[in-house]
Nucleic acid binder design. Structure first.
Length: 207
DNA sequence: CGACCGATCGTCT
DNA sequence: GACGATCGGTCGA
């Protein structure tokens, strides 16, 4: 078994959120609530570049009750409610007062699949279990109450188990669902593992 | 396969 | 009072 190493501030605290988003591909997100452990390998991410990014909730340095956590220390979770239904899970990066974040949009299930089925109300595991940011959070049991949780902690953490997608396997594209961001909607801030069935978006050409 | 639609509620104006 | 960093279902070509 490869050694499992929790990512810490030396990973999350760096300044290039786009680079970190790419590096998160292949890492493992683990949650353990009430003894129920679930985990999945990250296959899709999106970088949100803080104050200068029209797609970010923190665009223009906007500090509100909701966005405040992004202005805090790196290596914490930013989970917010979208459309009143979906809890979206983000990783806060960069130093304090710089509101960078990375949305986890798809993971490949590893541990605790029965628990994920229970949480999502699905009968059998298929690619919709953890495909798309809303489904990822639901399967992993992440809710808005977990906003501010350390990502190097016991309940929630992200680890490096030695696996790394090859460079040729990594796809890049504009982000999904951010048409409101004008020119920033075109930025190549979305990263995914090509051909992986847990990557969201149009099936057509992930090649 | 693409277009559209309803669900549902915390956050901000 | 309006509006989403979404999802899953339905409808029609």
């Amino acid at each position: 078994m490869a050694e499992i190493k929790k990512l810490d501030y030396s990973f999350y605290g760096r300044k290039d959120v786009v680079k970190i988003a790419r590096e998160l591909l292949g890492k493992v997100v683990v949650t353990e609530f009430n003894g129920q452990r679930t985990s999945g390998r990250i296959v899709e991410t999106e970088a949100y570049n803080g104050a200068v990014d029209r797609a970010s909730h923190a665009f223009g340095g906007r500090r509100t009750r909701r966005t405040e956590i992004m202005f805090g220390d790196a290596g914490t979770a930013y989970v917010y409610l979208c459309y009143g239904i979906h809890h979206l899970f983000n990783v806060v990066t960069n130093e304090k007062d710089i509101p960078h974040a990375i949305l986890i949009r798809g993971v490949e299930p590893l541990e605790g699949i029965p628990v994920m089925l229970q949480r999502t109300g699905k009968k059998r595991p298929d690619n919709t279990l953890t495909r798309g940011p809303g489904n990822v959070s639901k399967a992993l049991g992440l809710l808005t109450v977990h906003t501010g949780s350390s990502l190097s902690g016991e309940q929630v953490f992200i680890a490096d188990d030695g696996y790394r997608p090859r460079k040729a396997e990594i796809g890049v594209s504009p982000r999904i669902g951010v048409d409101y961001a004008g020119p920033d909607a075109e930025l190549p801030y979305r990263f995914f593992v090509k051909g992986n069935e847990y990557v969201s978006g149009p099936r057509a050409k992930a090649d």
